[in-house]
């Protein structure tokens, strides 16, 4: 298994902020919007450099989405940002009608996604956002895994014409991907090649998958780890190629088991290649208050859970 190390931990939302800082300098059409969460979204640098291209909407997310849709008329590229819960569930119909159905070039940038938001608890821990967003026709859905990848994804989506949902998080996590990498929307990244089981992971779960891969390796199991940073459009070719090789699949995501990455992968498999698949995901429940680490363990999203799922999938091989 390929060796991954890290020298620092950073939050993926800071990757978003860093990407916005770059876009502020490189793309005069980029406009940032935020609903009273500027510091949490790490927008300070962008705002300092481009005060005229920042729009503070106050605590009014529905209006923010509508304004973002309107800004595209005239060629602006709005990045509308807030917590994932308020960026999706709260404003679903606004996104559906004014952004997705209208085909507007709006980037919905969602921080504090999933359980790892931590102590604020279930009201803020959305675990349904990937499902909500991927069901919208024409919506691109991206969930990068670390600071560097989030920064690269932020920069990349400015050049992609069409609505995008970019999901990232609150806690600091290992920075293990290359700085200044090129982000290719819809192109899965093979983290490590293997022969016995395919682990398709997204977001914070990619690092957990790497840890799981190391544990499995010590037990003589050769895992292939693939980072599915783009949930939609899904890299079906990469999924099928890996699954055809290993004949056993695990999906891992910080999301409800219903409607997330696992279901997207399952659709690909059921239509093309019948191999066992195990889910590492939240089992159709809300979250609760706690530290991110505690919650990941309690809700079954740790490396240890991925290891168990991998063994189960392998045991089910025909």
């Amino acid at each position: 298994m390929k060796k991954y190390t890290y020298t620092e931990k950073k939050d993926t939302r800071s990757g978003f902020g860093a990407g916005m800082e770059v876009l502020g300098k490189s793309n005069p059409n980029v406009v940032a919007l935020c609903a009273d969460l500027v510091a949490s979204l790490k927008l300070d640098a962008f705002i300092k450099d481009n005060p005229e291209r920042f729009i503070q909407t106050g605590i009014a997310e529905a209006n923010m989405i509508g304004i973002a849709a309107g800004l595209t008329i005239g060629g602006k590229i709005p990045f509308a940002s807030t917590f994932a819960n308020f960026a999706t569930g709260r404003v679903y119909d606004q996104i559906r009608q004014s952004v997705a159905y209208s085909g507007k070039n709006v980037k919905i940038c969602a921080s504090h996604a999933g359980l790892t938001l931590g102590e604020d608890g279930a009201t803020h821990q959305i675990l349904e956002d990937l499902g909500l967003m991927k069901m919208l026709p024409g919506m691109t859905v991206i969930n990068p895994c670390d600071f560097n990848q989030t920064k690269a994804a932020t920069i990349a989506i400015a050049d992609h014409e069409g609505p995008v949902y970019l999901r990232f998080g609150r806690p600091v996590v290992p920075v293990f991907t290359a700085p200044d990498q090129k982000f290719e929307i819809g192109k899965a990244w093979t983290v490590s090649e293997g022969a016995d089981v395919s682990i398709f992971a997204t977001g914070h779960l990619v690092w957990e998958a790497i840890l799981a891969g190391e544990i499995l390796e010590a037990e003589g199991i050769d895992a292939e780890i693939i980072n599915i940073h783009t949930i939609k459009p899904l890299d079906e070719e990469a999924i099928l190629k890996s699954a055809a090789k290993t004949r056993a699949v695990v999906t891992a995501e910080e999301h409800n088991r219903l409607g997330g990455l696992g279901d997207s992968v399952a659709q690909v498999l059921v239509r093309n290649l019948l191999v066992p698949q195990e889910y590492v995901a939240v089992n159709d429940s809300f979250g609760e208050s706690g530290t991110p680490e505690q919650l990941m363990v309690k809700y079954g999203l740790s490396a240890r859970n991925i290891v168990e799922a991998a063994k189960k999938a392998i045991a089910r091989k025909g």
Binding site: V31, A69, L71, I73, G74, R96, Q97
Partner: peptide
């Protein structure tokens, strides 16, 4: 037609966005 409408309450926000876009473009 520049935006879908029908689900009510969204057009004023969209119009504000378009107005801000005009201002940013010195139009």
């Amino acid at each position: 037609i520049r935006i879908a409408s029908g689900s009510l309450g969204q057009g004023l926000s969209v119009a504000i966005g378009a107005a801000l876009s005009k201002k940013l473009n010195s139009d």
